[in-house]
Design a protein around this nucleic acid. Structure first.
Lengths: 394, 394
DNA sequence: CGTCTGCTTGAATCGCACC
DNA sequence: GGGTGCGATTCAAGCAGAC
């Protein structure tokens, strides 16, 4: 029965499973949105639908509690449950979990945060979902995961050994010659309860066209957090089967259940040849996309602009346009000849069709041709510090 | 009564306030931790019903509901409420707010996330808090705040107009000659519901030693989101008075209430001279581009200077001297006539014996006497934003 | 006043063109 | 021909306008 997708209402199906046999249960239950969802897959050939309609919240609570009680009995003493939750049903889910697992076994509210396309909505752009993490007992299995130190952490604190001086203050350790002492290798910062994982991208090959499909990366992190290889992972509302795919990819055993025949079929197909999109963003880090020095942009204090990161020629575009075309901004890089800056900016102007652009000159020496402040629609403006400098030396 | 801190139980104090007079209520209600312990004693044998959500914590729910009902009546039709929430009380608070304000007036669950020093605890490092945002009606006041585009977004999407082709695919629009078509002005991405704001640094000057003190930046963002200058902000559990300080700094009226005599005193003291630590992280971080804080001295980016406090005439002195005398700097204040700035600076030059000084002009209109860039040793330099503005309009 | 359809939109990968 | 810069493309939320 292990490593398969079962069809049916998880309430019935779970009754046939062994008690205390499961290491991790992940579920993304139908939400309490009082709406029926239908969505087609990519080529429009198939339609998935599920019914989120509940007469009132008590019915929904009853539905959930019945099932979560069985899940509780299926979990090993060292097991954990992760419940993915829409904002509309949050408080109901929390109440049910508190009553079945006990509020003392609440471990974390995980925030999965991501960036997304925007819309014209009045209000804040929704950019997160909540996952509740409860353990069956104090004895739960937990693998520590470490992440890179935050950029603002002082490097010395990572590398150097620390000790206490005669006044019992923490100081960096030095040897008798005053040389820096390096400490043990540190693993990084323990994983926090806010997880920034990119939303399943529209271009991702991983997509199977199932509504609410989760990124495999998210599930992998959950699985690796509380299970070891060979453990059993159960998803009672498995949908497109992401949990099972992630389990397979991380060498765990899995069991998926879904009420929809088409979902079961999709999951089974997916498991035959799992596709996982590596996130470039996560692999390379946000910083790898940066090409603008944020200090440089501070020069534009008081100007309305949008920074531009993936372009060699320009650092920003002004919000204000010039004759209907964009105004590009380049800030001269340290030690960059002004002529180079001009030619890069000029090229960008051509491709972007800009009629007027601005070059902020940050280096004192100009073109050596006397004062030039406008070439081919490029306006050259010196930084305040150069202007001040000039006033003082002439 | 406006702009003061009142002492007492907010339940009583709020009854004396005018109905429909408040624009924003922010509260960080106390949570009864003793009651939480009794929650642990549940025997689990009880039949679940929706009322169990409140179950043993009914007293707390009652306490909250009584007060939130009054708050609802104090709010204007265009007003909003932000409730800061401990994770143990989350679902109770949500249930109360849903019942008083109506679930259709739920706007956002704001996640305040921050980095923290790690601890050795088994489990995930807690690094966020939740704030619930409800409006009194559909008609709520809302000021859009924009942030920088993601680093991975490409410029053309910001610049170019898009349409759909015959196959209903999104493509860049071209005119009949194949030229690029430009879109409307773009200000950036609307603010999302996940706010990364550094936790108050233990060493920060801002810290006044109150246990649950919040960063002023967090409160400022809330205030600016749903109120305008001159509006009234109420904090019924004001503690150390951060909400009131933030209101004062953003030119809103405020009213704070607290039951603790010492908290009231502390708040009053703090309001006399509010201290705000500008978070370095936010200043440099990627989210800061569009809403850089408007500290005037930031204009001097790249110039070596010493700031001058408590002097009517000058804001800074350059490290560089001019003919052995100090170079004074004044930054024109908002709405200050240039002539006034000049005469104040001139007076300061006399007393300090300065031969050359610098006036940074921040307002577009000059002296009305044509171009003047030097008077009696005062060099007048326009900010970059004015210089750019001129290049685009002439 | 529901229901349907269309439009705008940003993130992030894909993939082409250019050295 | 391999790397990389950057332009093109895809998808779904949610409002607007139609009916």
């Amino acid at each position: 029965m292990i490593n398969s997708i079962l069809h049916g209402d998880c309430f019935e199906v779970m009754k046939s499973l062994d008690e205390e046999s499961v290491d991790l249960i992940y579920l993304d239950p139908p939400f309490f949105t009082e709406k029926t969802h239908t969505l087609k897959n990519r080529d429009g050939s198939k339609e998935f639908s599920f019914d989120d309609t509940w007469g009132d919240s008590a019915n929904y609570a009853r539905f959930l509690k019945d099932r979560i009680e069985i899940m509780h009995s299926l979990l090993k003493d060292t097991g954990s449950i992760f419940v993915h939750c829409d904002k509309s049903g949050e408080h109901i889910v929390r109440a049910v979990l508190d009553s079945v697992f006990g509020s003392n076994n609440f471990q974390s509210e995980i925030i999965w945060s991501y960036k997304r396309w925007s819309n014209a909505k009045k209000g804040l752009l929704p950019a997160h979902q909540n996952i509740y993490f409860y353990s069956k007992s104090k004895n739960f299995k937990f693998n520590r995961i470490f992440k890179a130190y935050s950029e603002t952490t002082n490097v010395d604190q990572i590398l150097q050994k620390r000790t206490r001086n005669e006044k019992n203050k923490t100081v960096y350790a030095k040897d008798s010659f005053g040389n820096i002492q390096y400490g043990e290798k540190k693993k990084g910062v323990p994983l926090s309860d806010v997880w920034e994982i990119p939303y399943l991208n529209p271009k991702a090959k991983e997509r199977v066209g199932y509504p609410t499909q989760k990124p495999i990366l998210l599930l992998e992190q959950i699985i690796e957090l509380v299970t070891d290889a060979g453990d059993l992972v159960l998803d009672p509302f498995c949908g497109s089967g992401t949990t099972c795919v992630a389990s397979k990819l991380t060498n765990r055993n899995y069991l998926g259940i879904d009420q929809s025949e088409s979902a079961v079929e999709l999951s089974r197909e997916r498991l035959k040849k799992p596709i996982k999109t590596e996130s470039n963003l996560l692999k390379k880090g946000r910083k790898s996309y940066l090409n603008v020095d944020s200090n440089a942009l501070n020069l534009l204090q008081g100007v309305e602009f949008n920074p531009v990161q993936r372009n060699k020629g320009i650092d920003a575009i002004l919000v204000e346009q010039f004759e209907g075309t964009p105004v590009l901004v380049r800030i001269q890089k340290p030690n960059e000849p002004l002529a180079d800056a001009i030619s890069l900016l000029k090229k960008a102007m051509e491709t972007k069709g800009s009629k007027k652009s601005i070059l902020i000159q940050t280096e004192k020496e100009g073109l050596g041709l006397g004062l030039i402040d406008s070439i081919d629609g490029i306006e050259i403006i010196e930084t305040l510090s150069i202007q001040i400098d000039k006033k003082l030396t002439t």
